[in-house]
Design a binder for these strands. Structure first.
Length: 597
DNA sequence: GCCGTTTTCGGCCCGACTGTTTTCAGTCG
């Protein structure tokens, strides 16, 4: 771990975890809770919604305000941001080879074993450390060490192999859902399976998912675990005990199964849905009430109270049921105790899709949709929508002059006017109106590629960034504000421009953007496309806290894509959005009123 | 090392599985 002035949150988190590991290696009893403190501080930094360095730049005291960071760690981080060094951390790392922290990256190798391996084989430098270890394992050298054996050597070898194959990418939520539902189907073929549900970040609907965790309620755990480990599409069994089993499936994806009797199923669901931080906070509260929580239930006076449902579990703790999407230790526990949890928006509340690309020939330079406007309206009817917006990309600037662009937009307006006329005569249609919109590029200088005259043909427009993603925060913010400042422009679509596992979002001064939107009646999109999910959940929460209104759009380029709305709803829910915070839950009448504001 | 609606001192979440030893340490979530 290289300590330097511009460390980002991930690097700082790794540093703090390394400090915790170093204290573990030193093996002094007095460090027990210091280790926990460093691990919690590391987690806290990792999950921070803004860079720790930015907080520190703002004011030195900001760091200490972060829960989990106290006076001591704040001082050390401050020293790092100031000088690029930390005397204290350097002295902690002094007697430990850098290779140790390299070994730690291999799952299954913890601090103690990493240290033993580094010392035993005199592997000091982090460079090539894992390769050297792999060679020694292959030669059968590890099994001869004290406290190691043939099996642990094999498992180290396997872990290194998988570590090297593993990319850093986490599965998209949509992919994880498909995989999990196939496994749940397999589980339900076993007659002893009474219930099966997903757990973990998948159940909390995080935008990306690491492992897939599944819960089963049964009175025959052994039968169910045996059935699970016979899953036809598995690569190998990772572990198997009386309560849990883990398998690896192709793509190096780990699937864990947790099994519990039906009477305790609620506590099992609660425990493994997490998040870790939600559960820790919950257990600390329970402890103060003389209760102890686990996946088996709630222990009171050494007696176990079993909870078949999560509702009962939370009720026993004196709080309302907390929807999984909120369980991130972001204030939901306090809200649940005071009966102040928001009533979250649901998929059935959505009355429109506000970003759809049809195959209407608009002569754009970007990707065109696959389906006709008529096919899209038919699909929207199936989804019980009341209205929708056609938001093809703007006509390409290259090869079109202003006049030609206007003529294209006029042609599109005529088409949409005709569709709306036709719909009026068809009383059976759920969709009452389609809006003439456009997704317009924000050029690097904040200009739009079409004139204000051309904008006049639209009911409203979306703007979004499709190029020059790496401008400074200041320039990017100015760029966006300039684009939003047109009267017809109503929605800032996929605002960060991020593509999960592909590229980071742009840097924007969010408070400034949010304030502008609030003041000028601009809306911010939650893009439901599974690889975008943009605005991200934590920014949704910030926007809503400021009173901003948001839209949901699938960005669908074909009718199947319109089914992705539920992922957008998940993001909204993770951001604490109520029905009233999302404008396309409103009736057509109310939506039009809002447009004309 | 952090933290406070029982505390500025004295607590700190809870349990599973594996492998190496024979009662437990290490690792993980």
């Amino acid at each position: 771990m290289k300590i330097h002035k511009q460390m980002n949150n991930l690097e700082i988190a790794e540093l703090l975890h390394d400090v915790a590991a170093a204290y573990k290696i030193k093996n002094e009893a007095k460090n027990r809770f210091r280790i926990i403190a460093y691990e919690r501080a590391g987690d806290a930094v990792e999950h921070l919604s803004s860079e720790a360095k930015d907080l520190w730049d703002e004011s030195e005291g900001e760091l200490e305000k972060v829960a989990g960071i106290g006076e001591s760690i704040a001082t050390h981080l401050s020293e790092i941001f100031k000088t690029g060094k930390s005397k204290h951390f350097e002295s902690i790392f002094k007697d430990i080879n850098p290779a140790v922290f390299e070994f730690l990256k291999v799952p299954g190798i913890g601090p103690k074993n990493a240290y033993k391996l580094s010392e035993a084989f005199k592997i000091k430098s982090s460079k090539n450390a894992i390769n050297k270890l792999q060679k020694l394992a292959k030669k059968g050298k590890i099994r001869n060490l004290e406290h190691f054996g043939e099996d642990s050597e094999k498992s180290i070898l396997q872990s290194i192999k998988e570590f090297k194959n593993k990319s850093d990418v986490r599965m998209l939520l949509s992919r994880a859902e498909v995989i999990a539902s196939e496994i749940i189907l397999w589980l339900k073929e076993n007659k002893f399976v009474k219930n099966a549900d997903v757990l973990g970040s998948l159940r909390r609907k995080a935008s990306t998912v690491g492992d897939i965790d599944i819960a089963v309620a049964t009175n025959e755990p052994e039968e169910v675990l045996n059935h699970f480990t016979k899953y036809p599409n598995k690569s190998r069994i990772l572990e198997k005990g009386p309560h849990t089993a883990s398998i690896i499936i192709p793509g190096n994806i780990q699937v864990d199964l947790m099994v519990q009797e039906p009477e305790s199923y609620g506590s099992l669901l609660q425990h493994f849905t997490g998040s870790k931080h939600h559960n820790i906070a919950l257990r600390e509260i329970a402890l103060k009430k003389g209760l102890s929580l686990s996946e088996y239930g709630i222990k009171k006076n050494k007696k176990l109270v079993k909870t078949p449902t999560e509702e009962k579990f939370y009720k026993f703790l004196g709080m309302k049921y907390i929807p999984p999407e909120l369980r991130e230790d972001m204030g939901e526990i306090e809200a649940a105790r005071q009966n102040k949890l928001p009533r979250l928006v649901e998929l059935k509340d959505v009355k429109a899709d506000l970003q759809i690309h049809s195959n209407f020939d608009i002569e754009t330079s970007h990707d065109v949709g696959d389906n006709s406007m008529e096919e899209i309206i038919k699909k929207a009817n199936e989804l019980n929508y009341e209205y929708l917006a056609f938001t093809e990309h703007n006509p390409s600037q290259k090869g079109h002059n202003g006049k030609q662009i206007i003529s294209i937009l006029k042609r599109k307006k005529d088409k949409i006017d005709q569709l709306n006329t036709d719909m009026k005569s068809n009383k059976h249609n759920g969709v009452k109106k389609v809006f003439n919109s456009l997704e317009i590029d924000i050029l690097p200088n904040g200009d739009l590629p079409i004139s204000d005259d051309a904008l006049g043909y639209l009911d409203f427009a979306l703007v979004s960034i499709h190029s020059s993603f790496r401008l400074s925060k200041q320039r990017m913010t100015d760029r966006v504000l300039k684009a939003l400042n047109h009267k017809t422009v109503k929605i800032f679509a996929h605002p960060t421009g991020r593509k999960l596992n592909e590229r980071e979002g742009v840097e924007l001064n969010w408070p400034k953007i949010f304030e502008f939107c609030l003041k000028n009646n601009k809306l911010i999109e939650i893009n439901a496309e599974p690889s975008r999910l943009d605005l991200p959940d934590f920014l949704v929460k910030e926007a809503i806290d400021r009173g901003l209104k948001l839209t949901l759009g699938t960005d669908a380029h074909n009718v199947e894509g319109m089914n992705n709305m539920r992922y957008g709803v998940s993001v909204a829910r993770r951001g604490w959005a109520k029905k009233g915070d999302i404008v396309n839950t409103r009736s057509l009448f109310e939506f039009e009123k809002l447009l004309n504001k």
